[in-house]
Amino acid sequence: MSENCAARLTVNGSPEDFLGDPRRSLLDFLRLDLKLTGTKKGCDHGQCGACTVLVNGQRINSCLSLAVMHDGDEITTIEGLGPASALSELQRAFVTHDGFQCGYCTPGQICSAKAMLDELAAGWPSAVTKDLTSGPIPSDEELSERMSGNLCRCGAYPNIIDAIRAVMQAEEPA
């Protein structure tokens, strides 16, 4: 039972082979095997969003996924969005707007926000979108609902929304 299983993933642009017990979650593979400890483990049960990473550009909870399920997938973690020496816009905006206190939820918040902006640009609706056919208007209510899969125990929510909004405004065509 639990014979070694294999998968080849691309993590932050580099090919990485997984070979091991299929019970390995994607989260533990990133943190324990690849030493990419930016991604955090909060609840380990899909309830907090601390473990959010991008898989083929889409945000998921890496705690509720097995590494072996991701053969051929491209994974992006907070380390892939920008190293400390070259922060991405979202990362800089979180610093500028105090989008965190303890920082534990932050890598998940930023990965989530990155994909959230792409979902918004693609016109995906949310539970608070008034008109499902014409697409979303990015109100604060929309942004909060769309970020509701990421809990912040320090309650930095208002500043997280400010940081995201700053990036949206910077990206708006003049």
Binding site: G46, R59, I60, N61, L64, E119, T133
Partner: peptide, 26 residues
């Protein structure tokens, strides 16, 4: 997010969007 579902079966889109979180729904 499917345009047909949103236009003709919006109840289904609403119910899905009322559940879980964006990460889980993906």
């Amino acid at each position: 997010a499917d345009a047909r579902v949103r236009a003709d079966w919006p109840l289904l889109a609403q119910a899905i969007l009322a559940g879980a979180s964006p990460q889980l729904r993906n």
